[in-house]
Amino acid sequence: MRNAIVDYAIPRAKLADAKARDARYKSTEATAALVEQARRSFTDLSTTGEGGEMLLFLLAERFLQLPQILCKMDLKTDGRMHYHGADGVYAGVTDSGILKLYWGESKIYQKVASAISNCLSSLAPFLVEPEGESAERERDLVLLSDKADLSDPALTGALRRYFDRNSPLSNRVQYCGVALVGFDADFYPSDGGKAVSKEIETAARKELEGWRTKIGNRLSAEKLNLFEIHFFCLPLPSAEGFRDAFLKAMGLRNES
């Protein structure tokens, strides 16, 4: 994850400019500067959820092939402050030209039920609220109209049509979600213990049905049953340990 911080936190256009400058001067200075800029954009707060948000980015882009088109890290004015909006916006376009906007949400909690409940209650307003200036997604949509980070021609065209309110194709959009929940799982060995990876996998698959039930119940409670939502479940030895390890890996907390 640490090695992907520039991919996550720096807009593609800015990274492309840095690479072009380095190629021109046969240097790595511009790209190295972006690494430091990206690192400084992360908070050092012990309660940070940015590790989960970055992991959601990696899973969405690499496994779902959904490019991030709006990153909250580039919008922060203070490294210790959190941007109030979705944990990133991702996008895709169908063969028929329908734009699919995926609002991202990540929660890393000790309890699986709390992680699922808080994740979907945070995601729900971006999907279910009626169109209008007071909708939760409106701020992100305004930012998208100006700051969308695009590299795919088909996606660029679909997004331009969406924001052209004079176009009859501007309503060809579908709001979706992509979510990640991390939580403590008791099938990992205790500190200093060992386990066979296959046994951990088997235990996780056994627990999966329970997680699916909790997700289904919460989807119904939030009236999200009819929305397309990609959901990642991340059982962890320790949610607190994940946050601590992330801060250390980022150089935001001293090794101890």
Score class of each variant (00 low, 15 high):
I5K: 01
V6G: 05
A13S: 15
D17Q: 15
D22Y: 01
R24M: 13
Y25S: 15
S27L: 01
T28K: 13
T28S: 14
T31V: 13
A32C: 12
E36P: 06
E36V: 09
E36W: 11
A38E: 05
R39D: 12
S41H: 08
F42A: 09
S46I: 12
M54G: 06
L55F: 05
L56W: 02
L58M: 06
L58I: 08
A60W: 01
F63D: 14
F63K: 15
F63Q: 15
L64I: 04
L64W: 09
L64F: 08
L66D: 05
Q68G: 11
Q68H: 11
I69N: 01
I69K: 04
K72Y: 06
L75N: 09
T77E: 14
R80E: 13
Y83H: 14
Y83D: 13
H84P: 02
A86V: 06
A91Y: 04
G92I: 01
G92K: 00
V93N: 00
V93Q: 00
S96E: 14
G97K: 04
L99G: 05
K100E: 11
L101M: 08
G104H: 08
Y109D: 05
Q110A: 10
K111Y: 11
V112K: 04
A113D: 09
S114L: 10
A115W: 00
N118A: 08
C119A: 09
L120D: 02
S121F: 04
S122N: 13
P125V: 00
V128E: 08
E129S: 00
G132F: 05
E138C: 11
E138V: 02
L143E: 13
L144T: 03
L144C: 10
K147G: 00
K147A: 11
S151V: 06
S151M: 01
P153M: 06
P153Q: 04
P153S: 01
A154M: 05
L155W: 02
L159K: 02
R161C: 10
R165V: 15
N166W: 10
S167H: 10
P168G: 07
L169Q: 10
N171W: 03
V173E: 06
G177F: 01
V178L: 09
V181C: 15
G182L: 03
F183Y: 15
D186I: 08
D186F: 07
D186S: 15
F187H: 12
F187I: 02
Y188H: 05
Y188C: 01
K194I: 09
A195V: 14
S197R: 13
R205E: 11
K206T: 13
L208E: 12
L208M: 11
E209I: 07
E209M: 09
E209N: 12
G210Y: 06
T213R: 12
I215T: 12
L219S: 00
E222I: 03
E222F: 09
E228R: 09
I229S: 03
F232A: 01
P235T: 07
P237C: 07
A239T: 06
A239C: 07
G241K: 10
F242D: 08
F242S: 03
R243F: 02
L247I: 07
L252W: 04
L252M: 07
R253S: 11
N254P: 02
E255C: 03
S256F: 03
